[in-house]
């Protein structure tokens, strides 16, 4: 079954965050459905809804994000969308 996941990126604002993160997604052939980004008191916050055709790719994806996290000092999380639906919709 096709699933969607929510990717959130938080960290100190700097050049190239979106580029680095979306490159990883593209490499894993993940289509971005929705994207929003703001800067709050020097803090970069981005949320994306991505299509996750193959859940087995998750391990790889998390590993690739770990590198980006370390390199740019960011916190990146990937969560299947269902959990947000469950918590915020009746």
């Amino acid at each position: 079954m096709q699933k969607r996941a929510v990717v959130t990126v938080v960290g100190k604002d700097q050049v190239g965050i979106i580029s680095k993160v979306t490159t990883v997604l593209a490499k894993h052939k993940m289509n971005i459905h929705d994207i929003s980004q703001t800067i709050l008191q020097d803090y970069f916050t981005m949320m994306m809804i991505v299509e996750m055709k193959n859940k087995d790719l998750l391990e790889d994806l998390l590993e690739a994000f770990e590198q980006v996290e370390a390199e740019m000092n960011l916190t990146i999380s990937v969560q299947l969308e269902d959990v947000f639906q469950a918590m915020h919709r009746i």
Binding site: V6, T8, S36, T45, M47, I49, T75, S77, Q79, E81, V83, F84, Q85, M87, H88, R89
Partner: peptide
Amino acid sequence: MAIHYSEIQETIRMVQM
């Protein structure tokens, strides 16, 4: 159904903080 960004933030805050 679309999830609002403030709701995503709320969930993440609950888990991380």
